[in-house]
Design a protein around this nucleic acid. Structure first.
Length: 493
RNA sequence: GGUCGCGUGGCCGAGUGGCUAGGCAGAGGUCUGCAAAACCUUCUACGGCGGUUCGAAUCCGCCCGUGACCUCCA
């Protein structure tokens, strides 16, 4: 019996605004599609949130025994500065400003994105398709929508006919938008352009003379509309219908709404069964926006170089901080909150490490089976990582008590606890053991030697010298903790 | 203005009709040459006003505040 048959995973489905039992289309296979970044700038906090959220989902689904195909796209063409099919292509603009090829921009920021993901210990998706590598598929889908009558060609561009679509289907069912409101709220309603209606969106855009990212098509040279890539690529790799589509809440409208319309128009039925959206990140209570100048990149966070930051925060701290909030809530970054997360993480990791130093004994007060149940229950409830972490802290308290001899645990329970903690902390939450900074055998031996000498000095009540040794080591990032009959030390992260 | 959401103690953040969330910070204590860590005890709560109920932070209404999207953003 697989783990997924024992666990009922509930997922909040944005489409129905309620938690639903997750039942994949073709178990044990699960198809997961998540909107990845448009690679025209450095990876920032807003990229970290969905990455961590859906990494957690990916890891948990795999743990439950599902065979997950996780597709996370890279947008490298077609994402214009305005979602209303106006303005320059983001990549193209960056390339122009930096006097480089558009694909140089793409490669550079894609590499940086991958480095950040690795630092956060985010698993690679199964497939990471680029929009520019799927022009044919996007053209084919545009033609399909045209042939079904839900799109029209206009001056070398192809637009989706939202009004016509809405007569038969429901445009706005994901985001709760009302079409009439959208039309009346349109920015410049009287504008003369190629669209029948301002709410129509581009499937294919004609490339102007200076637009160098261009491909031939039956409509002339051009490039694909932003929304089309996700519909075309998810269909290619996950099929006409698949299980989960994820992304940031800000993508709900128009991006995901348009994806739904495209898939339904092309095939007559919905492609996605569960829509999941992570909430936004705020900085000191204020939304993070390019226009507000409070964008914090991951590199700035890791190095502490942003003016809003008091100090640097490790990737592990950032990840732990994100996991301490439910993905559906907004998450506010502040120095105080990050500092708390940092200390909490140290405490948790300390407990995991301390497990190896506990001597088994009589049965103790901690109910490990109960902990296991509660941990799974937390995860099954729409990925309740904050609750899971609270339960993990309960084990930390117990572990520390057992270590100091105030509580005890049998050898069998100790094994069970160890494997459970490793499972939840490392495999599912995807945290990493600290001290990854390898110092080498020799250096470790030297520290041991020095501390043994210090012990002798200390026993001779030469506290001046013993404190000096400890302080100097602290300066090297080595934390010394005196014990009743010896010492412990570790590298500070 | 429209649509959707949120408002929990010093900070972050769970819970969602009666039963301790948790972390960080604060206070007291144990341990210690000191420090660090750890452990024990402990203080600060459910935006406001009404309503439903035996009972509401939890349901309903109104108000206030705030956020997201509608414009660049994950």
């Amino acid at each position: 019996m697989s783990k997924y048959q024992e666990n009922q995973l509930f997922i909040y489905n944005t489409l129905n605004r309620k938690k639903e039992l997750f039942q994949p289309l073709n178990p044990p296979h699960v198809g997961l599609y998540v909107c990845g970044p448009t690679v025209y700038g450095d990876t920032h906090l807003g990229h970290a949130r969905p990455a961590v959220t859906f990494d957690l989902l990916f890891r948990y689904l795999k743990h439950l025994g599902y065979k997950v195909r996780y597709v996370r796209n890279i947008t490298d063409v077609g994402h214009l500065e305005s979602d209303a099919d106006e303005g320059e292509d983001k990549i193209l603009k960056k390339a122009r400003l930096e006097h480089v090829e558009p694909m140089e921009v793409v490669q550079y920021y894609l590499n940086r994105y991958h480095e950040s993901m690795k630092a956060l210990n985010i698993l690679s998706p199964s497939i990471e398709p680029l929009a520019s590598g799927h022009i044919i598929e996007q053209q084919a889908m545009a033609e399909e929508i045209l042939s079904k009558g839900y799109a029209y060609e206009s001056n070398g561009s192809v637009y989706f006919d939202v009004l016509k679509y809405n007569r038969k289907y429901h445009y706005g069912k994901l985001s709760g938008r009302v079409l009439e409101d959208l039309i009346s709220n349109a920015q410049s309603p009287g504008r003369t352009d190629e669209k029948k209606n301002s709410v129509d969106f581009a499937l294919w855009k004609k490339a102007g003379p200076s637009h160098i990212m261009r491909w031939p098509s039956k409509w002339g040279e051009g490039f694909p509309g932003w929304h089309l890539e996700c519909s075309a690529m998810s269909r290619k790799y996950l099929g006409m219908q698949f299980d989960i589509h994820g992304g940031g809440m800000d993508l709900m409208f128009p991006h995901h709404e348009c994806e739904i319309a495209q898939s339904v128009a092309a095939s007559g039925s919905d492609a996605v069964r569960y829509w999941m959206h992570n909430n936004m990140v705020t900085i000191n209570g204020q939304k993070m926006g390019k226009s507000l100048g409070n964008f914090v990149t991951l590199e700035e966070l890791f190095t502490g170089s942003h003016k809003l930051l008091d100090k640097s925060y490790s990737p592990g701290t950032i990840k732990f901080f994100i996991l301490q909030a439910h993905y559906g809530s907004t998450l506010d970054f502040s120095n105080e909150a990050l500092g708390a997360a940092e200390k909490g993480l140290v405490r948790l990791m300390g407990a995991v490490k301390a497990l190896d130093r506990i001597e088994p004994g009589a049965a103790g007060s901690f109910n490990i089976l109960e902990f296991e149940k509660k941990a799974y229950r937390a995860m099954n409830d729409d990925l309740g990582s904050p609750v899971l972490i609270a339960h993990l802290f309960d084990t930390a308290r117990f572990i520390n008590s057992a270590l100091s001899g105030k509580d005890s645990v049998t050898a069998a329970d100790l094994d069970k606890l160890r494997s459970l903690l490793r499972l939840f902390v490392f495999d599912i939450l995807g945290l990493e053991e600290k001290g990854d900074r390898e110092m080498g055998d020799l250096a470790a031996k030297l520290v041991d030697l020095l501390l043994n000498i210090r012990l002798e000095v200390k026993n001779n009540k030469n506290f001046e010298l013993s404190d000096r040794i400890r302080n100097e080591l602290t300066g090297f990032g080595i934390v010394v903790k005196d014990k009743k009959d010896g010492f412990e030390w570790e590298m500070k992260e």
